[in-house]
């Protein structure tokens, strides 16, 4: 075995991880470079009038307001990706901190944190987001915050479980023997040993974040017109699915490839992490 076998390296050696990474990378590149490439390639900008509505002009035709679909497609992933990454980060950091604290401390703090979790968990994530949007309106920071917050209890559950599994290990007890402060035990003894499940959570939450941001935009309650956005585009163009399918198909395809890609990576992380656990207990 190699000197330092981390979950990450072992996951990367799996073929599905390579496929997943490639798929993800393609869409991420498209989303990041698209906003610059679009005008340069097509000569249109995202909101400008390019031709009559729903015509087959250009690469992918025009939409209902006569804007160039391909330009809008190229520009439509950046915000989605940014929001999804930020929401994931908030959810994973918050959830990990709460879960580790609850799992390691136990007792009343554990009960309070986990009961609070239960309340948040009683709402499907999308419904909770809708509740917040109904009150405060569809704004970017709110989408990020509310999706992040609804991830947190789910991540916390996993982090807590993983923490409880290692907290009675003798190496934690050894650290207590040297009167190591709690924060340091959590950061130096517990955290490195629960990275496996946490990385799986990270991947999973990213996949879901992409789905939620795109879904909310699709519902007309996320990223707002006239911005170019994949979710929004699907909603705008679906009435013309039969005559001008590209306005729907391109963004659907991009979202599908992206989420399938992140999910493949996540799954290979999961099997690498599971394999590692087996080795430790064997």
């Amino acid at each position: 075995m190699s000197t330092r076998s981390t979950v990450f390296r072992r996951a990367l050696s799996l073929p599905q991880a390579k496929i997943g990474l490639t798929l993800t990378a393609v869409v991420v590149l498209l989303a990041v470079l698209g906003p610059w490439l679009g005008p340069w390639l097509t000569g249109h900008d995202t909101t400008g009038f390019a031709g009559k509505p729903f015509q087959s002009d250009g690469v992918a035709g025009t939409d209902g307001l006569g804007r160039d679909v391909f330009t809008r497609f190229l520009a439509g992933g950046a915000t989605l990706l940014l929001y999804a990454v930020l929401a994931t980060a908030i959810g994973v950091v918050l959830g990990t901190a709460l879960g580790m604290l609850a799992g390691y401390t136990g007792g009343r703090l554990d009960s309070v944190i986990m009961r609070g979790n239960d309340v948040l968990l009683s709402f499907p994530q999308l419904v909770f987001a809708l509740l917040a949007i109904a009150m405060l309106g569809p704004q970017g920071w709110l989408l990020v915050l509310v999706i992040g917050i609804t991830h947190a209890p789910r991540v916390a559950r996993v982090a807590r479980q993983a923490t409880v599994a290692v907290k009675d290990s003798d190496y934690i007890r050894a650290a207590q023997l040297y009167a190591m402060p709690r924060r340091r035990i959590l950061l130096r003894e517990v955290l490195p040993n629960i990275t496996g499940p946490l990385m799986v959570e990270l991947g999973l939450r990213l996949t879901y974040s992409i789905g939620y941001v795109a879904s909310l935009s699709f519902l007309g309650l996320g990223i707002q017109p006239p911005s170019a956005d994949w979710g929004l585009m699907i909603n705008e163009n679906r009435i013309a699915l039969v005559v001008e399918p590209w306005g729907v198909l391109l963004p659907v395809l991009a979202i599908a490839v992206l989420t399938v890609g992140t999910n493949l990576v996540t799954d290979s992380l999961a099997s690498a992490a599971a394999g590692r656990e087996k080795e430790v207990t064997a």
């Binding site: 992409i210 789905g211 699907i234 699915l241 399918p245 989420t259 399938v260 992140t262 999910n263 493949l264």
Partner: peptide, 23 residues
């Protein structure tokens, strides 16, 4: 199931519409 699990609801829905209802 890994592939399908990754897809948001509306992506599956649109795919089904394309496949079974329109095109």
């Amino acid at each position: 199931s890994l592939v399908i699990a990754a897809l948001p609801e509306f992506v599956i829905g649109v795919a089904l519409i394309v496949l079974l209802s329109t095109t």
